[in-house]
Design a protein around this nucleic acid. Sequence first.
RNA 1: GGCGCUAUGGUGCAAUGGUUAGCACGCGGCCCUUUCAAGGCCGAAAUACGGGUUCGACUCCCGUUAGCGCUACCA
Length: 486
Amino acid sequence: MALVSKPRVRFAPSPTGYLHVGGARTALFNWLFARHEGGTFILRVEDTDVERNRPELVEGILQGLRWLSVAWDEGPYFQSQRLDRYRNAAEDLLKSGFAFLCFCQAVQYAGADATPEGEEGTEKIARTAPCPCRDLTSAQREQKICEGAPYAIRFAAPREGVTRFEDAVFGQREVQNVEIEDFVLLRSSGLPTYQLGAVVDDVAMGITHVIRGADHLSNTPKQVLLYRALSATPPIFAHVPLILGPDRTRLSKRHGATSVSLYADEGFLPEAFRNFLALLGWSPGGDEEFLPTSELISRFTLSGVSRTNGVFDRAKLEWFNSQYLQKLPIDGLLPYVKTELRRSGLWRAQWDDSEREWFARTVDLLRPRTRLLPDFSHWARAFFSDDFGYDPDARAKFWKDPKVPELLSKLADALDALVEWSHDPCDHALRALAAAEGVKAGLLINATRVAIVGRAVAPPLFETMVVLGKSRVVSRLRRAVPAVAA
RNA sequence: GGCGCUAUGGUGCAAUGGUUAGCACGCGGCCCUUUCAAGGCCGAAAUACGGGUUCGACUCCCGUUAGCGCUACCA
């Protein structure tokens, strides 16, 4: 049995924007495939469009990948630093007769539907017609060059036959060659187009599987033709379906957040985001959904990739986040909470050493009620700071009974007298007071909750008391007495 | 316009000729809980349409429709 070499895959973003969720998922699939197969994941920046290129955006893309822990093994390589290779390849293609010089005026694309609907007949057909420069005599070519006319290099697409390739997701594909236009390889500026750059690099880098968005499916035959012309063997392709917005059109800025960094800023956990993204367009085959990264890696296969475009469902993403917030080992969660509290200015150094246990316990108590990281500094603020206000809705709901101030005051005294500060003594003291005062325990419990954490929503009251500590609970109760009337 | 891809509840997926079409999100209800979540249980909700092939189609074939992609000296 022949030794099969390990797969080499790549993610090739263009620095024309931030890392969007579609790109992130493509990167994730490449990475999962590489990890599953023990292969190599390469990062290559395709920055050959000088007009739209924004070099300063590269770092943001790398940061997005780092946040997702999608780590590359090689690169990042930059196409802008490899221009000679593409030029040489184009020259070779020219010599071997696979390409020709084109002196046509560069047509500037002006948008998807720029062509007026009216007289499409002539104009649109012209788009796929073979370039007339292909049939220029060598004398005519010489003359153009002498005149100093700018030229591009185009691929001479075959005019008959079919081109086939293997797609791990879509199966065997074949396209009639007459449908393939004489596409540009090298622009008159000397810079390569996507088709040339991608193929030359994929060959040079030994890429075995090209995993990319399905928007490239239609152009793949051109690349297959290029591989052949370059005497290289085409890789296995795997086109992954597109991610759509709720209106089923391609996900874009107008659908809201499409940048991965925005989700990081909003307080999503990378583990949750990864899990969610992995299941958008891929399935391990069964019903399991909560799949930590190790599980994702061991189960990932290209045959599990779907062929249908999918809608990005934020509600489901939030559900995944709440799941990870709950199920992550507490030590894995703490660093994220720490970062969040730092961001909001609530962090205290002792929670990292002398009070680490308290911190872990408090976070553990809070986490079933959280959906996003900022919940720790917003609704749970009173657990980390004495500086908190009383939620208007909470006081309206639980402080409306006229007996509340007196009850809170008496509870403060009763709790202050406690020798042991733990769940049951607090529980007994409160219920005893309620009984003595002739009120339902619930009334006191709810009023107390608002007094000590400022909100109607919190973990069970007595567990909350234990975590807050006696002195804080007592002083917050006393502080609340005048506040009830205010 | 041309070429291509796709089509299971509102959403994401499962079921690769034989199931009462399954799971999850979301939605509604109940339980738990004198808060709110989490958790448990129950419920409403789908094979786009029309033809074939077959003893039998979600599944295979054809057509229609719809959506999307490509059709750039963008990627």
